[in-house]
Design a protein around this nucleic acid. Structure first.
Length: 572
RNA sequence: GGCGGUAUAGCUCAGUUGGUUAGAGCAGCGGAAUCAUAAUCCGCGUGUCCGGGGUUCAAGUCCCUGUACCGCCA
């Protein structure tokens, strides 16, 4: 039994995520987790909210709440939505947890011991009115290049010129609008990533089976210009992990916190500690997933994320781990995704454009979204969501091909033989041919799933559903029933067993519908079809079942048009 | 500006280390069947593989170049 550690990129705390975020990390990670559990592997699937940093502080201020309280509330909201989407995390943690605080401080201490941290004097804009330092992007003013008034301190969005906050004419605080600003000296810790460049380079070179998207981004950062740069890992903020060297104070760093990108990936590890604590486990129980000296040697670790997160996961976080000199588990496979666009443009959290997770669940059950998103995952390039495509795909694949299959076979059996698996002969030639085809296809499906080829997996699964319809069509039990009822009974027995088989195979994609199918077939047998012939005899003659409700109602043209206009603008 | 990605049938996409008449699903057209959510199954594709050069016996697949769209730039 293999042991698989799976993490999804951490969603930021300031609001509900849209479907583009979902398909970029959490959903494919869930697919992989459910599949591996289905195969009988031991899985640890983790995610958490990323809670530190200025955007969280500002969102809390806007909501008129203390930031800790705001984060606690939003964490609950996100946990609830994740649950309703069927995201089967073993633990959904928080980067603000005490475990993460301790671990982050621990890593910083180890890095300092290894000589990989330097202190750098810096000059930064301080707002007297706000009583705080302002991150570059929170200083606004007139662009010296094009004269645009809303330029940010890191870049002018109008002319795209990169700026320094001190370049701005008439600078003001983006938080309060105050112009009472001054430049102050401040000291920060830098992680000497440059010292680890060759190690990281070799490590990336050894990953020959990673998506090109992943390695090309990593290589670019390693070699572009002067190569990998050292990175500031502290900030002058209140909300975050206090800068400490392990348990001890860090002279000169009083009142500062670690940068959100330093502590967020460490939360992958800390979340496992949170899982242990929440479930009455010991430290050893989580360490066997993460410490190669404590049993994590045989763990396969897979990360899922959108392409914007790749640099931090291929370079910064590995630098933290390698630099610590401790035997932590490093990622084995990094599956990255492109972006999903919405109806001709981008999904956008800040602009409220597109469909957000809570809204999606208001109009349709999770399985509809899961199927469409996964079967159209942006693997090789950016892909696009349109309502027409969504309606067509979902109606055809889920309602017609799969849902109707379940419906036609159960209703036929009920009307001719009653609600129990009818007695007939052994499977004949036609059934053996079907078993052979399904065996080939199921092995291909497993291959794609093991390789995390999401779209190809969906295609193969669909072909497996189609094979059932083809069989029924050519076997035609409604026809054989008239002259050879016993033969019809055998064919119906095959059809009913196919429903159970489909439920098991489809569960990673559409867990709710799969559960309904199993429930209708009145079975708890979810064993993976290593032997397809055996799997198609799982429901024996005489086994009771029931006819389920329609699995997937079709999306009507009226609904589609309604949603299309409802989601065309900004969210409320 | 630098870098990266993408450009293949009306739509969404596959096309492995270059090798016979470029494929799949959807949509469309025709047919079969009537158990079923008017569902299913079968048959039907003359596509400047973005343009232009080049390498090669052979290029959608490699090289150069141009164009378009998207993204990233700590």
């Amino acid at each position: 039994m293999a042991r698989i550690l799976i993490t999804s990129a951490l969603p930021y705390i300031n609001g509900i995520k849209h479907l583009g975020n979902l398909i970029g990390s959490q959903l494919p990670a869930d697919l992989y987790a459910r599949y591996n559990r289905g195969r009988g592997n031991e899985v640890m699937f983790l995610c958490a909210t990323d809670e530190h940093g200025t955007p969280a502080e500002l969102a809390a201020a806007k909501a008129d709440q203390p930031v800790a309280e705001y984060c606690a509330d939003m964490h609950k909201v996100q946990t609830d939505i994740a649950d309703r989407f069927g995201l089967s995390f073993d633990h959904y943690g928080r980067s603000s947890s005490m475990q993460n605080r301790k671990l982050t401080q621990h890593f910083a201490s180890k890095l300092a011991d290894a000589g990989l941290i330097t202190e750098v004097e810096d000059r930064q804009v301080y707002s007297n009115t706000d009583g705080r330092f302002l991150p570059d992007r929170y200083v606004e003013g007139t662009c010296p290049n094009c004269g645009h008034d809303g330029a940010r301190g890191d870049q002018c969005e109008e002319c795209t010129k990169q700026l320094d906050p001190t370049d701005l004419i008439n600078p003001r605080s983006a938080i309060s609008g105050s112009t009472d600003l001054e430049v102050r000296e401040t000291k920060h810790l830098f992680l000497r990533q440059s010292a680890l460049r060759d190690q990281l380079d070799q490590w990336i070179d050894s990953k020959t089976d990673w998506p090109i998207l992943t390695t090309s981004i990593a290589k670019k950062w390693l070699h572009d210009g002067d190569g990998l740069q050292d990175r500031g890992i502290t900030r002058d903020l209140d909300w975050g992990v206090p800068v400490k060297k392990g348990d001890e104070d860090w002279p000169g760093m009083e009142g500062k916190v670690f940068y959100v990108w330093f502590d967020a990936p460490i939360e992958y590890i800390a979340a496992t500690g949170e899982w242990a604590e929440a479930n009455g486990k010991t430290d050893a129980d989580w360490q066997r997933w993460w410490r190669t000296d404590m049993g994590a040697d045989d763990v396969k670790y897979v990360q899922f994320m959108g392409k914007d997160n790749v640099p931090f996961h291929t370079l910064s976080f590995p630098a933290t781990i390698l630099g610590s000199g401790e035997p932590w588990k490093m990622v084995d496979h990094l599956k990255s995704f492109n972006y999903l666009n919405y109806d001709g443009g981008q999904f956008s959290t800040s602009k409220g454009r597109g469909v957000f997770m809570d809204q999606a669940l208001e109009i349709l059950p999770a399985d509809y979204w899961r199927w469409w998103l996964l079967s159209h995952a942006p693997e090789s390039s950016d892909s696009e969501f349109t309502w027409e495509n969504f309606q067509q795909s979902v109606n055809k694949d889920l309602a017609d091909v799969l849902g109707n299959f379940v419906s036609r076979i159960t209703k036929f059996c009920r009307s001719k033989f009653g609600e129990a698996v009818p007695e007939g002969a052994e499977y004949g030639e036609q059934e053996q041919a079907l078993i052979a085809e399904l065996t080939t296809r199921i092995r291909a499906y497993e291959g794609h799933m093991d390789a995390m080829e999401v779209r190809k997996s969906a295609q193969e699964l669909r072909a497996i559903w189609v094979a059932g319809n083809e069989y029924l069509q050519s076997a035609a039990p409604w026809s054989t029933f008239k002259t050879e009822p016993e033969k019809a009974a055998t064919q119906v027995r095959m059809g009913l067993n196919l429903i159970r088989l489909y439920a098991v195979l489809s569960a990673p994609f559409i867990p709710t519908a799969a559960a309904s199918m199993l429930s209708a077939m009145n079975t708890l047998n979810t064993s993976w079809p290593d032997d397809v012939a055996e799997a198609l005899n799982a429901l024996p003659v005489g086994h009771d079942f029931s006819v389920p409700d329609v699995l997937f109602a079709k999306i009507t043209d009226d609904q589609r048009e309604d949603w299309q206009s409802r989601f065309s603008g900004k969210r409320d």
